[in-house]
Computed example of a mutant assay.
Amino acid sequence: MSIKEYLKDRTVFLLINFTLYIIISGILLLININNKVILLTFCIWFFPILVYIMIEYVKQKLLYNELNHIMDHLDKKYLLTEIMKKPENIEGKLLYDVLRRANKDMHEHVNNYRDRENEYREYIETWVHEIKTPIASTRLIIENNQNDITRNIKEEVKKIEEYIEQVLYYSRSNNVSKDYLIKEVSLADLVKRVIKRNSRDFISKGIIIDIEAVEGTVYSDAKWLEFIVNQVIGNATKYNREHDGRVTISTDRNENNIVLTIEDNGIGIIDKDISRVFEKGFTGENGREFGKSTGLGLYLCKKLAEQLGLGLIITSKMGEGTRVKLIFPLGSVNLMH
């Protein structure tokens, strides 16, 4: 707040006083009062007014500077009224009380929506666990009745399980800290588990897997890592070539990190889509062409990787393949942000 803005806000008050002074000065001139008396009247009239205005300006400027300083260093801006001092002037007190009431009402609404969100998430998680029972029964029936039809049904059941898993991880993605366990994870064992999960897809499409260069140990949550790696490898399978496809998985240890690289020689991603693959719901040209993309897989991978303190980078060239790098920082245990 500048002095110019402050005075402009009090223009009417100053104009009224100046107009009254002009009128009184005119009357004094008409009755032949000495000019020195008129000048003295001006000083007596306007000096206290100017002093008052300057004192109020300094007080308000200090208050607004303090508020701006608090806002600049406050992560949760809505907590301003909990930290700021209650103003001394009547206008400031009234505004402070209004802000407190508005803030209290906002908190009540936020808590209400948070409770509704928690109830919805709990319902989704319960539903996911309940749906696993009929799926397990379906798998058992398929195993006891092996034929071409049941094998096809088994593949569709696998897709259903993957979508259900995606729903579960999506519902928990904003509360990862309540569902993670940091421990030592062997990258080779992790990759082998994911390869085993997708073995039928690799066999049916004739895709060659090279995991000989995978080694190293990191500290993270094995379950969340397996979901991320499975999503990436699943994409490498889905958008790969028939019969001459290849997926190469390797690790590189650098001074500050270990990088797990998953590379395929599939159809690749066009340049205009590569910058948006981590956006929620984005399917791109490949997703529309193949009709199998939800636009949530890579979005969840990026979100979970960030919360686990990991880096996730994707590069691609149309017609040549895609490379995804999962970066594990070295040092102390990779804790959540």
Rank of each mutant, 00 (worst) to 15 (best):
V191H: 11
F282Q: 09
D252M: 07
W45Y: 08
S2E: 06
T261D: 06
N65C: 10
L20H: 07
F227L: 00
T251I: 10
E66G: 15
R100K: 14
D179N: 13
T19Y: 10
L29R: 12
F290L: 15
G92C: 05
E122H: 09
E82R: 05
L30R: 11
L80P: 04
L28Q: 10
L168H: 07
T237D: 06
F328L: 13
L30M: 08
N256P: 03
A305Y: 15
D210Y: 02
I53E: 15
N254C: 09
K59L: 13
R172F: 04
K86G: 03
L20F: 15
N112I: 08
T81A: 03
E156W: 04
Y52M: 13
K303F: 13
C301R: 09
A188M: 06
I27L: 13
R193H: 03
E125S: 08
E161Q: 14
V12G: 03
I142P: 03
D115L: 02
E279K: 14
G319V: 01
N175Q: 11
I142S: 12
S173G: 01
I55K: 14
G295S: 09
G266H: 00
G311W: 14
Q307M: 15
V58Q: 13
K303I: 14
Y180S: 10
I313E: 11
A222H: 13
L79T: 12
H243G: 01
V37S: 10
S186W: 06
D9H: 02
G297M: 10
G245W: 05
I55G: 04
K317T: 13
N147K: 07
I70M: 13
I314S: 02
L50W: 05
T248V: 09
S316T: 00
L7V: 05
I313C: 03
Y52E: 07
G266S: 00
R276L: 04
K158Y: 08
T41L: 12
D75E: 06
R241Q: 05
L312Y: 11
Y113P: 01
I16A: 04
D72Y: 12
D210H: 01
V194Q: 06
N34Q: 07
A213I: 03
K317R: 07
K158G: 05
H73G: 03
I207N: 08
N174P: 01
I153E: 06
Y21D: 08
S177R: 07
D179I: 05
I90V: 08
L7S: 04
I131T: 12
N256Q: 08
N286G: 02
I207H: 05
K8T: 11
V229L: 00
E162D: 15
E108P: 02
E242A: 05
R172M: 10
I33D: 02
K223M: 09
E289D: 11
Q307G: 10
E212W: 00
S137A: 15
I135R: 14
E66A: 15
S171G: 09
Y123A: 08
K178R: 11
I44R: 06
Y123E: 12
L187Q: 04
K36I: 14
K93P: 01
A213Q: 11
L39G: 03
R101L: 08
G92E: 08
G297T: 12
V277I: 15
